Amino acid sequence: MEANILRCGGIKKLPPISRRPPGMELGYRRPPRKLLSSVVEARVQTEEKMVAATEKTTYKDNWFDRLAIRYLSRSIQATTGISNNKQGYESLVEAAIMICKKFDTKAQQDLIKILLPQSTFTREFFAAFTTLFFPWLVGPCQVRKSEVKGKTEKNVVYIPKCRFLESTNCVGMCTNLCKVPSQQFIQDSLGMPVYMAPNFEDMSCEMVFGQQPPLHDPTLKQPCNHKSCITKKTHRVNCSSG
């Protein structure tokens, strides 16, 4: 038998048996465990974010939120002439969708200016909104009454001591960074004139919604308080409002 094997050329050397799994041929290096762990963790985080993004958030609107949503939705529907039977925020979203379908980009932007036409409700609405959501900026404030076209309305916001003015004690900063920009923004963006009348003696301020600022506003001619103005004392800046 041995002779027969030798005649056939002897026993040929068999190829070595590879212990590497398929796809991991010679020269292949397994990624470090830390890298694999990081990849898996990143993938899990991505999937969690995708799930969170698809989950619908539940909002708990208070009475003021519901009032504002209802009013804005009805204003949009009245302006576009397209009404819907939905309630709450869904009604507002539906009304907004109708705007996108009916008006081009410029018309959509111009529409905002006529959504809140002047009325007793809108003037009082702006006043109430300010007292609820801006104390963090100007300090505690309250709604006061004034006479508009022979009728008494709650359209004035009175700020006993403005937080910003008290902190800066600067006429220029009050006028150029708060009063004038706020008046212009509310007028141009929301179509509601407002006159802000700061009192630099006691740091109080009044915001009168529905009133145009006077042509020759005395506030704009107010000299700076050189002794206590923070920009004058600290940075020697000429901050006069005029």
Rank of each mutant, 00 (worst) to 15 (best):
E147N: 06
R19F: 07
R19S: 05
M173G: 03
K13Q: 15
F133V: 06
C239W: 00
S18N: 06
T175L: 06
V39A: 12
V148D: 03
L67Q: 10
R7K: 09
C205N: 02
Q87V: 15
Y89F: 13
A197D: 05
S241Y: 03
P22F: 07
K56V: 14
Q187N: 14
M1N: 14
L165W: 00
V156C: 00
C170R: 02
S75R: 09
K179L: 09
C141R: 01
I114K: 14
G23C: 07
Q212Y: 15
I114A: 08
G191I: 14
V44M: 04
L116V: 06
E94W: 06
C229L: 04
R19T: 07
Q109F: 12
K233T: 01
E90Q: 05
P223S: 13
C100V: 10
S228K: 08
G23A: 12
P32D: 10
S37I: 01
G139D: 08
P16I: 07
G150F: 08
K151G: 00
L72S: 11
R19N: 09
D65P: 03
Q183F: 02
K233H: 07
S189C: 10
G242Q: 09
C224V: 14
E41T: 02
K13M: 15
N85W: 03
C174R: 00
L220C: 06
I112E: 10
I114M: 09
R74I: 11
V148Q: 01
I186Y: 04
K227N: 03
